[in-house]
């Protein structure tokens, strides 16, 4: 089976800075793959490169076998990729409902997915007419993920969902992400190794803009030396 996503020797520049200097990995269908690495390693840039927001200068990206590098972000998204950016970037001036509606790609997407989204994040239902600014951090994160679920996305790119959230809230998010992974493939950037190791089946370690190690999460969990070397003490 072809992997849902495949990156081959990706090089990305931001301005004159050579940020990604060879990232390659594949994400298998229907599983969660965690992107790990220290601060500034290039995890966010990798997700943005897949989305076309920081287009690669060299290398190949394939989604379901089709080349997507060089396409514009809206075209890439329209193929069925949902993006949950870091720092809970919801639209602050829009209400919760508008934040969801804006993500429609076909008429009626929101109406169709409403039930699924609110069963996953019951809190959002009662906040539906509140403006984004007025949500708590955890609620904003839920909204950011929910927004990526409105359209029919087969691949979700989620950047540091647990960042700055209380442990209880993280618990809730984790179970939501686990449920998501039942229907779609997830690529997850996660600093919290405990969270990542409990969620993901596969991992890719990025260091200084290069993918240096990847494999099954199970193996990494047992590899103390690697954890220490690439991620610092875990």
């Amino acid at each position: 089976m072809t992997p849902i996503l495949e990156l081959r020797d990706i090089h990305t520049f931001i301005g004159q800075y050579h940020i990604l200097q060879g990232v390659s990995f594949t994400a298998p269908h229907g599983a969660i793959t965690a992107l790990l690495g220290r601060n500034g390693a290039g995890k966010t840039t990798t997700l943005k490169t897949i989305m076309g927001l920081t287009p690669p200068r060299a290398g190949e990206i394939r989604f379901e076998g089709r080349r997507i590098d060089g396409k514009r972000p809206f075209e890439i998204a329209a193929l069925g990729i949902g993006f949950v950016p870091e720092h809970r970037a919801i639209f602050r001036d829009l209400t919760v409902e508008e934040n969801l509606k804006i993500a429609e790609r076909k008429k009626g997407d929101y109406a169709r997915k409403q039930e699924m989204i609110f069963s996953l994040f019951p809190d959002l239902k009662r906040l539906i007419h509140l403006r984004g600014t007025n949500l708590s951090g955890g609620q904003q994160q839920m909204l950011a993920i929910a927004r990526a679920l409105v359209a029919d996305n087969r691949l979700l790119l989620i950047d540091e969902p647990s960042e700055g959230l209380a442990p209880v809230v993280i618990e809730g998010l984790m179970s939501a992400i686990r449920q998501l992974a039942a229907d779609s493939t997830v690529i997850l950037v996660e600093q919290n190794f405990l969270v990542a190791s409990q969620l993901a089946e596969h991992y890719v370690i990025i260091e200084e803009g290069r993918s240096v190690k990847s494999g099954r999460m199970q193996d990494l969990v047992n590899d103390r030396a690697a954890i220490h070397r690439y991620l610092g003490a875990a």
């Binding site: 809206f74 998204a77 602050r92 829009l94």
Partner: peptide, 25 residues
């Protein structure tokens, strides 16, 4: 309107609007 919603969202964060599949250009 939807266009208005996109404008209000785009004022804050164009990249994210584009990443939702909207042709911001």
């Amino acid at each position: 309107t939807r266009l208005g919603m996109i404008i209000r969202a785009g004022v804050q964060d164009r990249e994210m609007v584009e990443a939702l599949g909207i042709n911001v250009r």
